[in-house]
Computed example of a mutant assay.
Amino acid sequence: MGNTARTMKATPEINSTPWQSGQRSDFLAVLDDYPTPDISPPIFQVGEKLRVISDEGGWWRARSLTTGHESYIPEKYVAKVYHGWLFEGLGREKAEELLLLPNTKIGSFMIRKSETTKGSYSLSVRHAHVKHYRICRLPNNWYYISPGHTFQCLEDLVNHYSEVADGLCCVLSNPCLTQHTISNEGRIQDPPVVMRNKAFRWKDKQRSKEDDDEIVDMLGMEDSGLSYGLRNSIASYLALTGENDSSSYVRKKKKSQSVIYRREVTSQPAFMFHED
């Protein structure tokens, strides 16, 4: 086992983006107790997070981030996890099992490869029950759950639905298996996870007409870094306050595609892609 040559395993393709290219998995997620209880007391239990020490060819030498215990485990007993929420090597049934583990909160989620549609992904979310949503990929490699909202990469999709539900059963709160871990010094600490940004409060900001003019100019820039929907929301706020005429931005037509394309709707998106 220890003399087997190492084999490099590629990160699953998400999109050709700098944050994904060449990145190693964050941790391994244990899918089943190992060894099975009928053989001996398990060394690693389902739901534990493991830090890889070495790849021994079909086996991982890993350390538990829950107990600190170090041992070997076969590859088939674990899933590789990227960015805290992208799980490779598990299906719908195992996703539900992990999301229904004790102490898992409402809004916990993961993204995994779709079992029914090649090239697509599935978003699994813990609610009263586990809900599954198909993530479709456009010919230009953008992604969407509802056709009214498209995203350049999965990271943008996760960030968006961590802010608003937009037709999902709930807002995404924490990646699946978020839990306390043990550092090298033996202290308990929380691992970094995707978190929602703090709300920006305009009323706490002192604004002048010159500041508003600069904001309107920024809103008209396609490369401002703000999504189309956010720019519209800010422009609407400026118009409602009466402190600035934001019509200069409203009159400008969108000439190119934004990171998030939003279609005007009255309540819920036209439809969502649910997995049966």
Rank of each mutant, 00 (worst) to 15 (best):
K255W: 07
S233T: 09
S267G: 03
Q257E: 13
E243D: 14
S246N: 04
R251F: 06
L230R: 15
G242F: 02
I260L: 11
L240Y: 08
K254Q: 15
S236C: 09
S267R: 06
I234M: 08
T241F: 04
S233L: 11
N232I: 07
E243M: 11
R263F: 02
S224D: 10
S248E: 13
S227Q: 07
V265K: 01
G229P: 00
L240D: 10
L226Y: 09
Y228N: 04
R263L: 04
A235C: 09
S248K: 12
S247K: 13
V259T: 13
R231L: 05
S227R: 10
R231I: 07
S224L: 06
V265R: 03
V259C: 05
I260A: 01
S233K: 11
S227G: 12
I260E: 09
E264H: 07
Q268N: 12
A239P: 00
R262D: 00
G229M: 07
K255P: 03
K253W: 12
A239I: 01
N232C: 14
L240C: 08
S224G: 04
G229K: 11
E264L: 07
T266C: 05
I234E: 00
I260S: 00
K254A: 05
S248A: 13
T241Q: 12
S227Y: 03
L230H: 11
D245E: 03
N232L: 14
Q257I: 12
A235K: 01
T266Q: 07
S248L: 09
S233V: 03
S267H: 06
S248W: 05
L230M: 12
N244C: 12
S258G: 08
I234R: 01
N232K: 13
G229D: 12
N244G: 02
S236F: 06
Q268T: 08
K252E: 11
N232P: 01
R262M: 01
S258V: 02
S256F: 08
A239F: 04
K255G: 03
S248R: 12
T266Y: 04
Y249P: 01
Q268Y: 10
K252L: 15
Y261G: 00
S256W: 09
S247R: 14
E264N: 06
G229Y: 06
R231Y: 08
V250N: 12
S248D: 13
Q257V: 09
T241I: 05
S236M: 10
D245G: 02
S267E: 07
V259M: 13
Y228A: 13
S246K: 01
L230P: 00
L230N: 09
T241L: 11
S267Y: 03
T266P: 00
V265A: 03
K255Q: 15
K253D: 15
A239N: 05
